[in-house]
């Protein structure tokens, strides 16, 4: 895992364990660079992503597909320093 954080959190556009076909990716890209992203649904493969993270004192990169072979609890929440 490289130490240098990625610029911002990016879904890869594919599900975990798959790499995007470069040709297909271009076809799906609109003028704004928006891609037809795979959306999360139960029973489907999780959308893969790469993102910067803070982990035990260091800034790291996290890639969801690196967790293949393990159970993962992925928790979204509204914000740090909120009360619930």
């Amino acid at each position: 895992m490289p130490d240098e954080p990625v610029g911002c959190a990016k879904p890869t556009g594919t599900v975990i364990g798959e790499t995007a076909d470069p040709d297909e990716k271009n076809e799906n890209e609109s003028e704004e660079g928006e891609k037809n992203m795979v959306m999360a649904r139960v029973g489907g493969k999780a959308p893969d992503f790469e993102a910067p993270a803070y982990h035990k004192g260091a800034f790291v990169n996290v890639k969801l597909s690196d967790y293949l072979g393990k159970w993962v609890l992925l928790c979204f929440y509204p914000g740090d320093f909120t009360f619930v």
Partner: peptide
Amino acid sequence: GRFLIDPDGVI
């Protein structure tokens, strides 16, 4: 949002 993903990457 809480997602439980299995070792095959399935939600």
